[in-house]
């Protein structure tokens, strides 16, 4: 439900963070550092050479799930979207996932008695991590460069045959099918801890921290997946159509 008003470029950057601290990692992903005094969002973005329109749409989509500016986000270049998504992947792999891994380790160190159950959780999380990492990797190695190739082909009006073939297939859609399974696995992990995991006084505090981090990761990943599903995929589709049309028009001319 829309109960939150969207941020604007004229707002103070400090106020943005005061009103939603969960935006802190997003702001970090854009390479913005603290100490921005009373500068507006617009000022901070220009100083860091960030497209302010894109920045605003990303933080708003994160701040309020029902505000999802699919159309506005479509106007930005594929390069900009992919740069953001790649930085998000890095954030998960370099910070978030290792943090959660450490929390599980500390849970094992602080358990009273039997570590067997926590080792089960650890294995479950490690499998999840491996699947997440390989999903990111295949996106970065296959999907993201494909967007670049499409944009280049459209700009130069030169379309390699292999690219055209790919554009005509449903190849790209298959990649985002993993999201559902990854989300289910993370939800299962949370639910196993909440509902079925026997904790004791000593381990309970660590369990709380672990759960909070899992919820944060889930929320962040949901937004990330939404950008891929609702912005990147339609972007790819529209680029594919343009490239196919360009090719058809070229053919008609040469006849």
């Amino acid at each position: 439900m829309n109960t939150k008003f969207p941020f604007t470029p004229a707002m103070k950057m400090a106020d943005v963070i005061h009103s939603n601290y969960k935006l802190i990692p997003i702001i970090g992903r854009f390479g913005i550092h603290f100490g921005f005094g009373n500068s507006s969002v617009l000022d901070v973005c220009s100083k860091h050479n960030i497209n302010v329109g894109f920045f605003i749409e990303i933080i708003n989509s994160y701040h309020n799930k029902s505000y999802f500016p699919t159309e506005q986000l479509q106007h930005f270049s594929g390069e900009l979207i992919i740069d953001y998504l790649t930085k998000t992947h890095t954030f998960y792999i370099d910070s978030k996932i290792p943090e959660i891994g450490n929390l599980i380790d500390s849970l094992i160190e602080n358990v009273d008695g039997n570590t067997q159950n926590i080792v089960l959780l650890q294995e479950f999380f490690n499998n999840y991590k491996n699947e997440l990492v390989s999903h990111f990797k295949s996106e970065e190695e296959e999907v993201f460069p494909y967007v670049g190739s499409l944009e280049r082909a459209e700009k130069l009006k030169e379309i390699p045959g292999s690219l055209l073939e790919k554009a005509k297939s449903d190849w790209a859609k298959n990649f985002e099918r993993d999201h559902g399974y990854l989300e289910e696995t993370l939800f299962d992990l949370k639910n196993l801890i909440i509902k079925f995991f026997p904790t004791h006084q000593k381990s309970s505090r660590h369990c709380q921290r672990l759960l909070i981090e899992l919820f944060r990761l889930e929320e962040d990943l949901e937004n990330h997946a939404a950008i891929e599903d609702k912005v990147l995929l339609p972007k790819i589709e529209s680029l594919e159509n343009k490239v196919i049309q360009l090719n058809d028009a070229g053919k008609a001319k040469s006849k």
């Binding site: 159950n117 479950f124 299962d188 639910n191 026997p198």
Partner: peptide
């Protein structure tokens, strides 16, 4: 009933119990 969807999750549940 359990609100666990993945096979891996169900296996952990079965082991814990």
């Amino acid at each position: 009933k359990l609100e666990i969807k993945t096979i891996a999750g169900l296996t952990v549940y079965a082991l814990i119990n």
